Amino acid sequence: REGRNIRTLEAMCGVDLIVDDTPEAVVISGFDPVRRELAKRTIEKLMEDGRVHPARIEEVVEKMKSELTKSIKEEGERVVMELGVPNIHPELIKLIGSLKYRSAHAQNILNHSLEVAYIAGLLAGELGANVKTARRAGILHEIGRAIEHSAEGSYAMVGAEWAKKYGETEDVCHAIRAHHDDEKPTSILAWIVHAANILSSTRPGARRPHMDAYIHRLEDLESIGNSFDGVLKTFALQAGKEVRVMVESAKVTDDQSTMLARDIARKIEREVPNSGQVKVTVVRESRSVEHAR
């Protein structure tokens, strides 16, 4: 009806809908991922129901908004309970739950925050710091991403302001501000969260571009090993820090194994940039089998 239903849906959900020639596809465009999720759920419900008109759209949007708000709150409560972190303000719990619909560098922010919380707890335990406080700062360190579209400043500074507003200690707020170098870490807790954030962000496979480069690097290392005569199979191990080369005992002697390991190491140095230290192990196995009758 001259786009009236689309305009109603866009106005109610706060997104733009792109309907082109692609069959059975509607593109939902918007800066707020929670609004995009609301629009997605609303469209799915309308398509399932079959009745599409402005009054029905308004009704479904309100219903989906209520369900989405409830699921965000439940998700935040689940995470806080899983970590064993008590007395977090309900508003902060909602922000934690809404991180489920946000991502950075293809890494889900809620999963990242949960991972940082666990790593921070482990580090705190090793250093004799308060484990629960470290987990608390870890799970809250990214909450600014849930509100940065509606506030000025970096997400770390905005997150710290909201944490302080809802009763978090200055130690936790400082850790939030300092986790991304917006402020220099000056406490053990801040350094713990800073380190945990780096570990979670840079581990192999954490972020999609990094994961692609990581897989290509392993493939390059294995192809270098396989390029030599007498090699049966090459395995890249320990995130590419070790290359294990299996050779044919009939073609490669013990002395040649030593030379082969050195040649492979030199080729890795030449052809794989920024490889760091890579241990090359050549495995030559001889088996003699006899049967007693």
Score class of each variant (00 low, 15 high):
residue 150 S to M: 10
residue 158 V to H: 00
residue 175 A to Q: 06
residue 45 K to W: 00
residue 70 K to A: 12
residue 77 E to D: 13
residue 98 S to L: 01
residue 162 W to R: 03
residue 136 R to I: 10
residue 139 I to W: 09
residue 163 A to W: 06
residue 153 G to W: 09
residue 82 E to N: 06
residue 159 G to M: 06
residue 140 L to Q: 02
residue 156 A to E: 15
residue 74 E to D: 14
residue 166 Y to D: 05
residue 104 A to S: 11
residue 93 I to K: 06
residue 155 Y to E: 10
residue 181 D to L: 13
residue 82 E to I: 01
residue 169 T to L: 03
residue 76 G to D: 06
residue 123 L to W: 01
residue 50 G to A: 09
residue 145 R to Y: 10
residue 96 I to Q: 09
residue 75 E to L: 11
residue 84 G to K: 10
residue 72 I to C: 07
residue 95 L to Q: 07
residue 77 E to H: 01
residue 151 A to Y: 14
residue 115 E to W: 01
residue 102 R to S: 10
residue 173 C to L: 01
residue 107 Q to P: 02
residue 152 E to G: 04
residue 75 E to M: 14
residue 59 E to I: 02
residue 118 Y to A: 03
residue 62 E to C: 05
residue 152 E to A: 13
residue 83 L to E: 04
residue 130 N to T: 08
residue 99 L to P: 02
residue 65 K to H: 01
residue 94 K to Y: 11
residue 71 S to G: 02
residue 104 A to N: 09
residue 77 E to Q: 14
residue 163 A to D: 05
residue 113 S to Y: 03
residue 172 V to C: 05
residue 77 E to L: 11
residue 57 I to Y: 06
residue 183 E to T: 12
residue 60 V to Y: 03
residue 78 R to L: 08
residue 63 K to S: 13
residue 147 I to Q: 11
residue 95 L to W: 05
residue 78 R to Y: 08
residue 184 K to G: 00
residue 143 I to C: 01
residue 130 N to A: 08
residue 112 H to L: 03
residue 183 E to M: 13
residue 132 K to L: 12
residue 87 N to M: 09
residue 71 S to L: 04
residue 116 V to Q: 04
residue 130 N to W: 07
residue 160 A to Q: 03
residue 90 P to M: 00
residue 53 H to C: 09
residue 139 I to Y: 03
residue 157 M to D: 11
residue 106 A to I: 00
residue 57 I to V: 11
residue 97 G to P: 04
residue 140 L to M: 00
residue 46 L to Y: 08
residue 148 E to A: 10
residue 85 V to Y: 04
residue 150 S to G: 05
residue 149 H to C: 04
residue 66 S to C: 07
residue 48 E to P: 00
residue 51 R to I: 13
residue 162 W to E: 09
residue 53 H to E: 15
residue 127 L to A: 13
residue 108 N to R: 14
residue 140 L to C: 01
residue 139 I to G: 04
residue 155 Y to L: 00
residue 105 H to A: 13
residue 58 E to Q: 15
residue 53 H to L: 07
residue 86 P to G: 05
residue 144 G to A: 08
residue 124 A to C: 07
residue 158 V to R: 10
residue 154 S to H: 14
residue 65 K to Q: 12
residue 87 N to Y: 11
residue 172 V to S: 01
residue 146 A to I: 00
residue 65 K to D: 11
residue 53 H to F: 13
residue 117 A to F: 08
residue 104 A to R: 15
residue 184 K to M: 12
residue 138 G to E: 08
residue 122 L to R: 14
residue 158 V to E: 08
residue 104 A to Y: 14
residue 141 H to V: 12
residue 101 Y to L: 12
residue 129 A to Q: 13
residue 131 V to F: 05
residue 182 D to S: 08
residue 172 V to F: 06
residue 177 R to H: 06
residue 178 A to F: 10
residue 118 Y to D: 09
residue 136 R to P: 08
residue 65 K to T: 02
residue 107 Q to W: 02
residue 134 A to T: 07
residue 144 G to M: 02
residue 163 A to C: 01
residue 103 S to T: 13
residue 157 M to L: 14
residue 79 V to N: 03
residue 184 K to P: 08
residue 46 L to R: 03
residue 130 N to K: 10
residue 156 A to V: 11
residue 114 L to K: 14
residue 93 I to R: 03
residue 86 P to L: 08
residue 184 K to T: 14
residue 104 A to K: 15
residue 62 E to M: 12
residue 99 L to W: 04
residue 171 D to G: 10
residue 150 S to I: 14
residue 121 G to R: 05
residue 147 I to N: 07
residue 186 T to R: 15
residue 81 M to W: 01
residue 54 P to W: 07
